[in-house]
Design a binder for these strands. Structure first.
Lengths: 244, 244
DNA sequence: CTAAGTTAGTTGCACAGTATCACTAATTGA
DNA sequence: TCAATTAGTGATACTGTGCAACTAACTTAG
């Protein structure tokens, strides 16, 4: 670690430090569409982007937060009440231009919530609302560089959905294969072949059947749960030798 | 953005801010092995982890650095002299425990250098040295949580190599297909089928032939360059419909 | 000049996974 | 009882890769 002024390297307390925040992109699927939770910026004259929509987030609290992920979980619980959804870091963005109050760095996470757990239409913290995502964007204008952050999160989600079990985290514990396929289709915004999907899901050992079916006005569907609830499953990739 | 003390939300200058650093994991391939550039921690009593090896990096300079990536490029050039190699963010790690001087957040990037551009065996800044990577690790003990950061960078690299053109950035502008295949094999630490590799590379339109061959003690090899030198190419994934 | 050695590059076939599509199964409600 | 609807299966074609044997083009040793 090199420093311009020698002093700085001796006493890190005098080093200028950026404003440090965490923002969380919270996804859920409502009404056949991917939605993201957005909050209202406070409407005080001191706050930048007052009254606009923004990603839930805020300054790291060096007393409360042991680490960045803890900070993200805290903000997530404040806004949704949900404790342990799927949470993954997207990356960090920092620079002089992104916040009028000065050099700042934000750490972006995305979370996946089952619609059943996502605060019922309205939300616990009243300033938060679900917005549908249409071609990588949301219809309202966002504060700071949050449009860019949101786009990156969507990109990451879409990308990863192609070869992982991520969409399963958008469902409650018990679900049918059609439910699961539907989540893939909603996130990827394209239809998937039923037969290929099923063989793939079984081959990856993604789910296991439970002793229940879902009844309805037509043929009942077998219910499943995740085989490894805590781990995401990767579908086979390429460049893999046939013999192990 | 919510605050504990109302004051804080009005004057961000009084908000406690973490120490903010950028660390760069610089990869190259030397002698058939993946190597990473490590520097020596200064040997002054004021610095933590004195005399140990660490990833090149250091505090963000809010005067010099417009943004995090700029900071990473600056540090990269200081240590290697190289201006525009492949550079990608791995993620950020922040918390109370990772630096004895207090709450800190680091932003980790990885860079890929052609062996030809990587400072000749020795290095410009004399405290930096190349270390070979053996099963996700380096043989020396690293300062801070840099072992973890390095592992994450290696993981990301390995993962992405499976389905992208990344290893091409470990080669000079002109290379043979055998060179390219060799880079894949070194990074993935396994051999790849020549024929399948070639059809894959051509199908993805990764390279284009130039009007030169490399002579040698045996059959001369066609030289190629990247088709899209500025973009990484993704190999086809799954869940893709056959008809477009 | 030729044969051996070496690396570059091609070809053909086997095999696995998935796309596509047509089919069967199980329920409700008219 | 039949139409409608969704669940689930099966058969086949296609595509990309694994694998192995082949041909090609050069250098060097004799």
């Amino acid at each position: 670690m090199e420093m311009t002024q020698p002093l700085a390297s001796f006493d890190p307390h005098v080093i200028e430090r950026p404003l440090t925040t965490v923002d969380v992109v919270i996804f859920t699927v409502l009404e056949q569409r991917l939605h993201v939770l957005l909050v209202l910026r406070p409407d005080t004259p001191e706050e930048p982007f007052k009254g606009m929509r923004a990603l839930p987030g805020g300054f790291v609290d060096m007393q409360k937060d042991d680490d960045l992920e803890g900070c993200a979980r805290r903000k997530l619980q404040q806004k949704t009440g949900v404790r342990s959804p799927y949470l993954e870091q997207v990356g960090s963005w920092g620079g002089i231009k992104r916040d009028p109050r000065g050099w700042s760095a934000t750490h972006v996470y995305f979370a996946l919530l089952p619609a059943t757990e996502s605060p019922e239409d309205g939300t616990p913290s009243s300033d938060a609302k679900w917005f549908p995502i249409e071609n990588q964007r949301v219809s309202v204008k966002l504060a700071f560089d949050h449009a860019k952050l949101l786009e990156a999160a969507i990109q990451r989600l879409r990308n990863k959905v192609e070869y992982t079990s991520l969409p399963a985290y958008l469902l409650p514990e018990e679900f049918t294969l059609s439910d699961l396929q539907h989540m893939y289709e909603v996130v990827l915004e394209r239809s998937i072949e039923k037969s290929a999907f099923r063989t793939r899901v079984f081959a990856a050992n993604l789910v296991e059947p439970i002793d229940k079916v879902r009844a309805g006005p037509n043929r009942p569907a077998q219910l499943y749960r995740l085989s490894q609830p805590k781990e995401i499953v990767y579908f086979p990739r390429t460049f893999s030798p046939r013999k192990i």
